[in-house]
Amino acid sequence: MSVVGHIGTAVGPHETPPPPPRKGRRLLPYLLLLPGGLWLTIFFAVPAVQLAATSLYDPSGSLQQGYAMTWEFGNYADALSAYWPHFLRSLLYAGIATLLCLLLGYPLAYAIAQKANRFKNLMLVCVIAPFFTSFLVRTLAWKTILSDNGWLVGVLRDIGILGSDGRLLATSAAVVLGLTYNFLPFMVLPLYASLDRLDGRLLEAANDLYASPARAFAKVTLPLSMPGVVAGTLLTFIPAAGDYINAELLGTPNQYMIGNVIDSAFLVRLDYPQAAALSFLLMAIILAMVFVYVKRSGTDEVL
Protein backbone atom coordinates (compact mmCIF):
# COMPACT_ATOMS: atom_id res chain seq x y z
CA MET A 1 0.00 0.00 0.00
CA SER A 2 2.61 2.29 1.11
CA VAL A 3 4.43 1.82 -2.15
CA VAL A 4 1.32 2.77 -4.00
CA GLY A 5 0.10 5.92 -2.43
CA HIS A 6 3.53 7.35 -2.55
CA ILE A 7 4.30 6.92 -6.19
CA GLY A 8 0.97 8.42 -6.95
CA THR A 9 1.17 11.45 -4.77
CA ALA A 10 4.80 11.91 -5.58
CA VAL A 11 4.05 12.73 -9.14
CA GLY A 12 1.07 14.84 -8.20
CA PRO A 13 1.27 18.62 -8.36
CA HIS A 14 1.24 19.49 -4.68
CA GLU A 15 4.45 20.51 -3.09
CA THR A 16 4.81 22.68 -0.05
CA PRO A 17 7.43 25.40 -0.20
CA PRO A 18 10.44 24.67 1.95
CA PRO A 19 10.80 26.48 5.24
CA PRO A 20 13.31 29.29 5.47
CA PRO A 21 16.87 28.20 6.10
CA ARG A 22 18.51 28.46 9.46
CA LYS A 23 21.77 30.24 9.87
CA GLY A 24 24.87 28.10 9.59
CA ARG A 25 23.00 25.41 7.69
CA ARG A 26 23.48 26.77 4.22
CA LEU A 27 25.91 24.02 3.31
CA LEU A 28 23.75 21.19 4.59
CA PRO A 29 21.47 20.85 1.54
CA TYR A 30 24.49 20.56 -0.74
CA LEU A 31 26.02 17.91 1.47
CA LEU A 32 22.75 15.97 1.43
CA LEU A 33 22.49 16.24 -2.34
CA LEU A 34 26.12 15.50 -3.05
CA PRO A 35 26.26 11.68 -3.06
CA GLY A 36 23.01 11.11 -4.93
CA GLY A 37 23.61 14.05 -7.24
CA LEU A 38 27.10 12.81 -8.08
CA TRP A 39 25.79 9.34 -8.75
CA LEU A 40 23.12 10.61 -11.12
CA THR A 41 25.56 12.97 -12.80
CA ILE A 42 28.26 10.37 -13.36
CA PHE A 43 26.05 7.45 -14.25
CA PHE A 44 23.16 9.21 -15.94
CA ALA A 45 24.01 12.71 -17.14
CA VAL A 46 27.57 12.08 -18.30
CA PRO A 47 26.61 8.94 -20.26
CA ALA A 48 23.73 10.86 -21.80
CA VAL A 49 26.10 13.57 -22.98
CA GLN A 50 28.57 10.97 -24.13
CA LEU A 51 25.76 9.24 -25.97
CA ALA A 52 25.05 12.47 -27.77
CA ALA A 53 28.72 12.69 -28.71
CA THR A 54 28.88 9.06 -29.81
CA SER A 55 25.92 9.64 -32.07
CA LEU A 56 28.05 12.11 -34.05
CA TYR A 57 31.06 9.83 -34.48
CA ASP A 58 32.25 8.64 -37.85
CA PRO A 59 30.19 5.48 -38.47
CA SER A 60 33.01 3.80 -40.37
CA GLY A 61 34.97 3.32 -37.14
CA SER A 62 34.63 0.25 -34.94
CA LEU A 63 35.06 -0.72 -31.34
CA GLN A 64 38.50 -2.15 -32.07
CA GLN A 65 39.86 0.73 -34.14
CA GLY A 66 38.16 3.45 -32.19
CA TYR A 67 35.88 6.19 -33.43
CA ALA A 68 36.65 9.61 -34.81
CA MET A 69 34.53 12.59 -33.95
CA THR A 70 33.44 13.97 -37.29
CA TRP A 71 30.20 15.70 -36.28
CA GLU A 72 28.43 13.19 -38.41
CA PHE A 73 24.87 14.54 -38.31
CA GLY A 74 24.20 12.19 -41.16
CA ASN A 75 23.96 9.42 -38.56
CA TYR A 76 20.61 10.83 -37.55
CA ALA A 77 19.35 11.02 -41.09
CA ASP A 78 20.53 7.47 -41.74
CA ALA A 79 18.96 6.21 -38.53
CA LEU A 80 15.67 7.86 -39.30
CA SER A 81 15.49 6.78 -42.90
CA ALA A 82 16.39 3.22 -42.04
CA TYR A 83 14.23 2.83 -38.97
CA TRP A 84 11.38 5.31 -39.17
CA PRO A 85 8.83 2.49 -39.31
CA HIS A 86 10.15 1.25 -35.97
CA PHE A 87 9.90 4.69 -34.43
CA LEU A 88 6.40 5.08 -35.74
CA ARG A 89 5.44 1.61 -34.56
CA SER A 90 6.86 2.26 -31.10
CA LEU A 91 4.93 5.48 -30.69
CA LEU A 92 1.79 3.89 -32.08
CA TYR A 93 1.96 0.78 -29.91
CA ALA A 94 2.85 2.81 -26.83
CA GLY A 95 0.08 5.30 -27.60
CA ILE A 96 -2.57 2.61 -28.01
CA ALA A 97 -1.35 0.78 -24.92
CA THR A 98 -1.46 4.03 -22.92
CA LEU A 99 -4.99 4.70 -24.10
CA LEU A 100 -6.06 1.17 -23.20
CA CYS A 101 -4.39 1.53 -19.79
CA LEU A 102 -6.36 4.72 -19.24
CA LEU A 103 -9.62 3.09 -20.28
CA LEU A 104 -9.03 0.06 -18.08
CA GLY A 105 -7.24 1.85 -15.27
CA TYR A 106 -9.65 4.70 -14.72
CA PRO A 107 -12.67 2.60 -13.70
CA LEU A 108 -10.44 0.43 -11.54
CA ALA A 109 -8.81 3.41 -9.82
CA TYR A 110 -12.19 5.06 -9.41
CA ALA A 111 -13.71 1.91 -7.96
CA ILE A 112 -10.85 1.57 -5.47
CA ALA A 113 -10.82 5.22 -4.46
CA GLN A 114 -14.53 5.92 -4.25
CA LYS A 115 -16.43 2.65 -4.09
CA ALA A 116 -14.31 0.01 -2.39
CA ASN A 117 -14.71 1.29 1.19
CA ARG A 118 -13.26 -1.37 3.47
CA PHE A 119 -11.92 -3.39 0.53
CA LYS A 120 -9.76 -0.48 -0.56
CA ASN A 121 -6.50 -1.82 0.82
CA LEU A 122 -7.20 -5.33 -0.42
CA MET A 123 -7.87 -4.07 -3.93
CA LEU A 124 -4.73 -1.96 -3.91
CA VAL A 125 -2.71 -5.00 -2.91
CA CYS A 126 -4.32 -6.86 -5.78
CA VAL A 127 -3.11 -4.18 -8.19
CA ILE A 128 0.52 -4.34 -7.10
CA ALA A 129 1.00 -7.94 -6.04
CA PRO A 130 0.98 -9.45 -9.57
CA PHE A 131 3.93 -7.22 -10.39
CA PHE A 132 6.25 -8.86 -7.99
CA THR A 133 6.19 -11.88 -10.23
CA SER A 134 8.99 -11.13 -12.60
CA PHE A 135 8.23 -8.99 -15.65
CA LEU A 136 9.61 -11.69 -17.94
CA VAL A 137 7.77 -14.51 -16.20
CA ARG A 138 4.50 -12.61 -16.59
CA THR A 139 5.12 -11.91 -20.22
CA LEU A 140 5.97 -15.56 -20.83
CA ALA A 141 2.70 -16.47 -19.11
CA TRP A 142 0.93 -14.33 -21.70
CA LYS A 143 2.74 -16.31 -24.34
CA THR A 144 1.13 -19.42 -22.90
CA ILE A 145 -2.31 -17.80 -22.74
CA LEU A 146 -2.15 -16.51 -26.29
CA SER A 147 -0.49 -19.57 -27.78
CA ASP A 148 -2.03 -21.16 -30.85
CA ASN A 149 -3.20 -24.28 -29.04
CA GLY A 150 -4.27 -22.41 -25.90
CA TRP A 151 -7.87 -22.22 -24.74
CA LEU A 152 -8.25 -18.51 -25.59
CA VAL A 153 -7.44 -18.96 -29.26
CA GLY A 154 -9.63 -22.09 -29.29
CA VAL A 155 -12.63 -20.22 -27.91
CA LEU A 156 -12.13 -17.26 -30.24
CA ARG A 157 -11.88 -19.60 -33.22
CA ASP A 158 -15.01 -21.48 -32.15
CA ILE A 159 -17.13 -18.36 -31.90
CA GLY A 160 -15.72 -17.08 -35.14
CA ILE A 161 -13.88 -14.00 -33.98
CA LEU A 162 -10.69 -15.56 -35.25
CA GLY A 163 -10.57 -17.48 -38.47
CA SER A 164 -9.81 -21.21 -38.23
CA ASP A 165 -6.13 -20.46 -38.70
CA GLY A 166 -6.24 -17.07 -36.90
CA ARG A 167 -3.57 -16.38 -34.32
CA LEU A 168 -3.14 -14.11 -31.33
CA LEU A 169 0.52 -14.73 -30.63
CA ALA A 170 2.98 -13.04 -32.95
CA THR A 171 0.56 -10.25 -33.88
CA SER A 172 0.53 -6.53 -33.19
CA ALA A 173 -2.47 -7.09 -30.95
CA ALA A 174 -0.44 -9.40 -28.74
CA VAL A 175 2.36 -6.86 -28.37
CA VAL A 176 -0.05 -4.05 -27.52
CA LEU A 177 -1.85 -6.32 -25.06
CA GLY A 178 1.45 -7.19 -23.40
CA LEU A 179 2.43 -3.53 -23.14
CA THR A 180 -0.98 -2.66 -21.74
CA TYR A 181 -0.77 -5.41 -19.19
CA ASN A 182 2.76 -4.67 -18.04
CA PHE A 183 2.31 -0.94 -17.53
CA LEU A 184 -1.25 -0.88 -16.20
CA PRO A 185 -0.26 -0.39 -12.54
CA PHE A 186 1.77 2.68 -13.49
CA MET A 187 -1.53 4.12 -14.68
CA VAL A 188 -3.72 2.90 -11.85
CA LEU A 189 -1.59 4.10 -8.95
CA PRO A 190 -1.33 7.82 -9.80
CA LEU A 191 -4.98 7.82 -10.87
CA TYR A 192 -5.91 6.26 -7.56
CA ALA A 193 -3.87 8.85 -5.68
CA SER A 194 -5.66 11.77 -7.28
CA LEU A 195 -9.12 10.18 -7.18
CA ASP A 196 -8.64 9.28 -3.54
CA ARG A 197 -8.21 12.96 -2.71
CA LEU A 198 -11.45 13.76 -4.50
CA ASP A 199 -14.03 14.95 -2.01
CA GLY A 200 -17.23 12.94 -2.47
CA ARG A 201 -19.23 16.00 -1.43
CA LEU A 202 -18.18 17.74 -4.64
CA LEU A 203 -20.12 15.16 -6.63
CA GLU A 204 -23.10 15.56 -4.34
CA ALA A 205 -22.88 19.29 -4.87
CA ALA A 206 -22.75 18.76 -8.64
CA ASN A 207 -25.79 16.48 -8.48
CA ASP A 208 -27.52 19.01 -6.28
CA LEU A 209 -26.87 21.61 -8.99
CA TYR A 210 -28.73 19.52 -11.58
CA ALA A 211 -25.73 17.78 -13.13
CA SER A 212 -26.43 14.29 -14.43
CA PRO A 213 -23.92 11.64 -13.35
CA ALA A 214 -22.26 11.86 -16.76
CA ARG A 215 -22.04 15.65 -16.58
CA ALA A 216 -20.82 15.57 -13.01
CA PHE A 217 -18.10 13.19 -14.12
CA ALA A 218 -17.10 15.34 -17.08
CA LYS A 219 -17.21 18.63 -15.20
CA VAL A 220 -15.99 17.66 -11.74
CA THR A 221 -14.34 14.25 -11.42
CA LEU A 222 -12.34 14.26 -14.62
CA PRO A 223 -10.85 17.77 -14.32
CA LEU A 224 -9.92 17.15 -10.69
CA SER A 225 -8.21 13.89 -11.54
CA MET A 226 -6.19 15.42 -14.38
CA PRO A 227 -2.91 15.42 -12.43
CA GLY A 228 -3.35 11.68 -12.00
CA VAL A 229 -4.22 11.22 -15.66
CA VAL A 230 -1.14 13.19 -16.75
CA ALA A 231 1.20 11.38 -14.35
CA GLY A 232 -0.28 8.02 -15.27
CA THR A 233 -0.07 8.50 -19.02
CA LEU A 234 3.55 9.65 -18.71
CA LEU A 235 4.52 6.74 -16.48
CA THR A 236 2.87 4.36 -18.93
CA PHE A 237 3.87 5.87 -22.25
CA ILE A 238 7.56 6.46 -21.55
CA PRO A 239 8.56 2.92 -20.60
CA ALA A 240 6.18 1.44 -23.17
CA ALA A 241 7.73 3.40 -26.02
CA GLY A 242 11.20 2.15 -25.13
CA ASP A 243 10.21 -1.43 -24.37
CA TYR A 244 11.33 -4.30 -26.54
CA ILE A 245 10.58 -7.34 -24.39
CA ASN A 246 6.93 -7.54 -25.37
CA ALA A 247 7.74 -7.20 -29.07
CA GLU A 248 10.43 -9.84 -28.72
CA LEU A 249 8.40 -12.39 -26.77
CA LEU A 250 4.87 -11.81 -28.05
CA GLY A 251 5.59 -10.53 -31.55
CA THR A 252 7.78 -11.28 -34.52
CA PRO A 253 10.40 -9.12 -36.26
CA ASN A 254 7.43 -7.55 -38.02
CA GLN A 255 6.35 -6.13 -34.68
CA TYR A 256 9.80 -5.00 -33.59
CA MET A 257 9.88 -1.65 -31.89
CA ILE A 258 12.70 0.86 -31.75
CA GLY A 259 13.94 -0.73 -28.53
CA ASN A 260 14.67 -3.95 -30.40
CA VAL A 261 16.63 -2.02 -32.98
CA ILE A 262 18.69 -0.14 -30.40
CA ASP A 263 19.30 -3.33 -28.46
CA SER A 264 20.64 -5.16 -31.48
CA ALA A 265 22.60 -2.16 -32.77
CA PHE A 266 24.40 -1.99 -29.43
CA LEU A 267 24.73 -5.64 -28.52
CA VAL A 268 24.65 -7.54 -31.80
CA ARG A 269 25.73 -5.26 -34.64
CA LEU A 270 28.02 -3.21 -32.39
CA ASP A 271 27.31 -0.15 -34.53
CA TYR A 272 27.73 2.35 -31.71
CA PRO A 273 27.28 5.64 -33.59
CA GLN A 274 24.03 4.50 -35.10
CA ALA A 275 22.83 2.92 -31.85
CA ALA A 276 23.60 6.17 -30.04
CA ALA A 277 21.83 8.23 -32.69
CA LEU A 278 18.76 6.00 -32.37
CA SER A 279 18.83 6.21 -28.55
CA PHE A 280 19.23 9.92 -28.56
CA LEU A 281 16.44 10.36 -31.09
CA LEU A 282 14.15 8.22 -28.98
CA MET A 283 14.98 10.20 -25.86
CA ALA A 284 14.54 13.51 -27.66
CA ILE A 285 11.22 12.49 -29.22
CA ILE A 286 9.88 11.28 -25.91
CA LEU A 287 11.05 14.33 -23.97
CA ALA A 288 9.62 16.66 -26.61
CA MET A 289 6.29 14.87 -26.46
CA VAL A 290 6.33 14.93 -22.67
CA PHE A 291 6.98 18.66 -22.54
CA VAL A 292 4.31 19.49 -25.09
CA TYR A 293 1.84 17.21 -23.36
CA VAL A 294 2.57 18.57 -19.91
CA LYS A 295 2.33 22.17 -21.08
CA ARG A 296 -0.93 21.45 -22.89
CA SER A 297 -2.52 19.80 -19.90
CA GLY A 298 -1.52 22.73 -17.73
CA THR A 299 0.07 20.70 -15.00
CA ASP A 300 3.72 21.71 -15.28
CA GLU A 301 4.17 20.88 -11.63
CA VAL A 302 4.57 17.27 -12.65
CA LEU A 303 8.09 18.15 -13.63
Partner: peptide
Protein backbone atom coordinates in the same frame (compact mmCIF):
# COMPACT_ATOMS: atom_id res chain seq x y z
CA UNK B 1 13.60 20.82 3.91
CA UNK B 2 16.01 23.31 2.43
CA UNK B 3 16.07 26.25 0.12
CA UNK B 4 19.13 26.39 -2.07
CA UNK B 5 20.36 27.45 -5.46
CA UNK B 6 20.17 24.85 -8.20
CA UNK B 7 16.93 23.39 -7.00
CA UNK B 8 15.37 23.32 -10.48
CA UNK B 9 18.44 21.64 -11.95
CA UNK B 10 18.38 19.03 -9.20
CA UNK B 11 14.71 18.33 -9.82
CA UNK B 12 15.43 17.90 -13.50
CA UNK B 13 18.33 15.55 -12.77
CA UNK B 14 15.96 13.44 -10.69
CA UNK B 15 13.08 13.57 -13.16
CA UNK B 16 15.01 12.75 -16.32
CA UNK B 17 15.98 9.17 -15.45
CA UNK B 18 12.28 8.43 -14.96
CA UNK B 19 11.45 9.95 -18.33
CA UNK B 20 14.21 8.16 -20.21
CA UNK B 21 13.51 4.78 -21.77
CA UNK B 22 15.49 2.01 -20.12
CA UNK B 23 17.07 1.01 -23.37
CA UNK B 24 18.63 4.49 -23.64
CA UNK B 25 19.91 4.49 -20.07
CA UNK B 26 21.25 0.98 -20.39
CA UNK B 27 23.02 1.62 -23.66
CA UNK B 28 24.53 4.95 -22.66
CA UNK B 29 25.80 3.52 -19.40
Amino acid sequence: RHRFRGRAATNLLIFLPMATPEVVMGSSL
